[in-house]
Design a protein around this nucleic acid. Structure first.
Length: 271
DNA sequence: AGAGGTACCTGGCAGC
DNA sequence: TGCTGCCAGGTACCTC
């Protein structure tokens, strides 16, 4: 479900309700996520205040008094702010309940998500310390991509979806950014010139910013922290548009599989 | 080191 | 209606 724009939308949606608030109780109904939810999450987090929520790639970091919660939504996860009296549904695995009566509810049917408690710097956690550059940071540009791509024979789409290269670009926005940049998704990363990487970096930033401004993309079931769907779906140029005419040239959008993931592109506009 | 495949898990939908 | 197979927004880990 969530790529960078959806995670960022979630972050912005939940922050006003829980930053500065004190945790009263943690309920873990199902601890079997990507890694088991540690009992320390409940024992240590209770009584602490949340000071800030940041994002690194697709990870959310909730900073509390003596440690942090590392949270990932996986393929199907979402976070909602509900009243603590709201009945939990089938896949509502974890609740973090605050003094103000609000509840941060983690919902994840496929359970590829993650909730960890750490007392150390979360950015130094093994899952996070090797994540690549933030595409929305000032330091991200085509030259960075160009340098990292030398000697990389993988297809460019898989290259930009590699979280150790760029953080947060998932399957939807990889296809979209390549379309905007006019680059064929099967092209080998090492065979793309510096100038084209500059255009690609700009396209990645552009599509991520645009998606965030629309509250992300809802294909099936993404909802923000406040329960709203994302409205970027109607702005998608190629993703999930297989067989439909390219909005630039009219040729049918092609759908292929790359590393078991769907890729969409225009054979005419992307070279 | 890089690349490719596999595993984790549930639900929805198309096709029979 | 019900079964089967495939697909889905992610990523870590294994092998070669």
């Amino acid at each position: 479900m969530p790529e960078l724009p959806e995670v960022e939308t979630t972050r912005r949606g939940i922050m006003p309700y829980i930053v500065g608030e004190k945790v009263m109780r943690v309920i873990v109904r199902n601890k079997h996520l990507r890694q088991p939810v540690s009992g320390k999450l409940s024992t240590e987090l209770v009584g602490q205040r949340i000071h800030d929520i940041t994002r690194r790639g697709k990870y959310l970091l909730m900073y509390a008094d003596t440690g942090s919660v590392i949270l990932h939504l996986g393929m199907s996860g979402s976070l909602r702010i509900v009243s603590k009296k709201t009945r939990p549904g089938k896949h509502d695995h974890v609740d973090i309940i605050f003094e103000n009566g609000r509840c941060l509810r983690f919902h994840d049917p496929r359970r590829f998500g993650l909730l960890l408690w750490t007392r150390a710097d979360p950015l130094q956690h093994p899952l996070l310390k090797n994540i690549g550059i933030e595409p929305l940071a000032d330091t991200f540009n085509g030259d960075v991509l160009y340098k990292k791509s030398r000697g990389r024979r993988v297809a460019i789409k898989q290259f930009i979806m590699n979280a150790h290269i760029v953080a947060g670009v998932g399957n939807i926005y990889a296809s979209e950014a390549l379309f905007l940049a006019g680059i064929h998704p099967l092209r080998s990363a090492e065979k793309i010139a510096r100038l084209r990487y500059r255009r690609l970096a700009e396209s990645i930033r552009q599509v991520l910013h645009a998606a965030i401004s629309q509250g992300g993309t809802t294909l099936r079931n993404f909802v923000s922290g406040e329960g709203r769907p994302g409205y970027f779906r109607q702005h998608l140029k190629v993703y999930d548009r297989g067989g439909l005419p390219c909005q630039t040239c009219g040729a049918p959008v092609r759908h292929i599989l790359q590393g078991q993931r769907s890729t969409y592109y225009c054979t005419n506009c992307q070279r």
